[in-house]
């Protein structure tokens, strides 16, 4: 497996505090990496550094063999999509228009009907096609989150016509979702991984995370404490040290859920 994204000795200082402290981090093509850790561990900051939103105060990040900061925004948009924690909209755009923001400009070489098709497919996949003509500002928190998932799916779909080594960053993508849509979104993320897209997600639910991937990254106080298979990362000693809880993980469930009627 080859690394698409490679960060070396990456630190970020914000508000006088070291939010990310000398972290080495690689993202491989078609790999599902889940970042876990307590509040304020630097998970979101790590994601912001890796997607180019923040510049590291120290260290360097290479994307596809080039320094991340040297890649112009329009080209970055082909290579990676980012789903933020929460996003308020300034104007009453329709759901279809919000999803279309993901393809406008990114699919500049695409025909109008192709862009429309990509946006509509993304709405279907995020289970918000029935809301297409609703005003985004009147949606519930969970519905908004699904619309933004549709937007990043549309961006990846449009970007894939130019670049095939893509990364999707998800920052707590299921925080407002009901159970059904949590599972559906994570299932969709796994489908993207099977298609060769690298997914880096921040999740809070350790059990869910452990069942989803064999590449877990544990962060604490800005440092990357451990990375690898869940049973090696989530040891009882580490859980006690990092989360301050006396949990005993006797055995991790191989598959934490069974989805009836879906494969």
């Amino acid at each position: 497996m080859t690394a698409i994204l490679e960060a070396k000795g990456m630190s970020y200082r914000g508000g006088g505090r070291l939010l990310v402290n000398r972290v080495d981090f690689t993202v491989d093509a078609g790999c599902f990496t889940i970042v876990v850790g307590p509040n304020g561990a630097g998970k979101s900051t790590l994601l912001k550094l890796l997607c180019g939103e923040l510049a590291p105060t120290e260290g360097e990040i290479m994307l596809g063999g080039r320094p991340l900061r040297s890649i112009p925004p329009w080209q970055l948009a082909h290579l990676r999509a980012v789903m933020p924690q929460a996003s308020e909209l300034g104007f009453p755009f329709s759901v279809l228009e919000v999803a279309s923001l993901g393809v406008e400009g990114i699919g500049r070489g695409l025909s109008r009907s192709d862009r429309r098709r990509i946006a509509e497919q993304a709405l279907e996949r995020a289970d918000v096609a029935h809301l297409a003509h609703r005003n985004y500002q009147t949606l519930s928190g969970g519905e908004c989150q699904r619309v933004h998932f549709a937007r990043v799916l549309a961006q990846l779909g449009a970007g894939r016509t130019f670049e095939d080594r893509q990364i999707l960053f998800l920052d707590e993508p299921i925080s407002s979702l009901d159970l059904k849509h949590q599972l559906a979104l994570l299932e969709e993320a796994r489908r993207l991984v099977r298609e060769g897209i690298a997914v880096v997600a921040v999740l809070h639910d350790l059990q869910l995370a452990a069942g989803l991937t064999d590449d877990l990254a544990l962060m604490d106080e800005g440092r990357l404490v451990a990375r690898g298979a869940p049973d090696r990362v989530l040891t009882s000693e580490r859980l006690a040290a990092v989360f301050g809880v006396g949990l005993v993980m006797e055995s991790l469930p191989p598959h934490p859920w069974v989805l009836a009627g879906r494969s």
Partner: peptide, 21 residues
């Protein structure tokens, strides 16, 4: 126009979408 449409989501999101904010 396209940049302003994306900015409606927020500055970080507009940057993610490829807009030179």
């Amino acid at each position: 126009a396209r940049g302003l449409n994306a900015l409606a989501l927020g500055e970080a999101e507009a940057f993610h979408l490829g807009v030179p904010v």
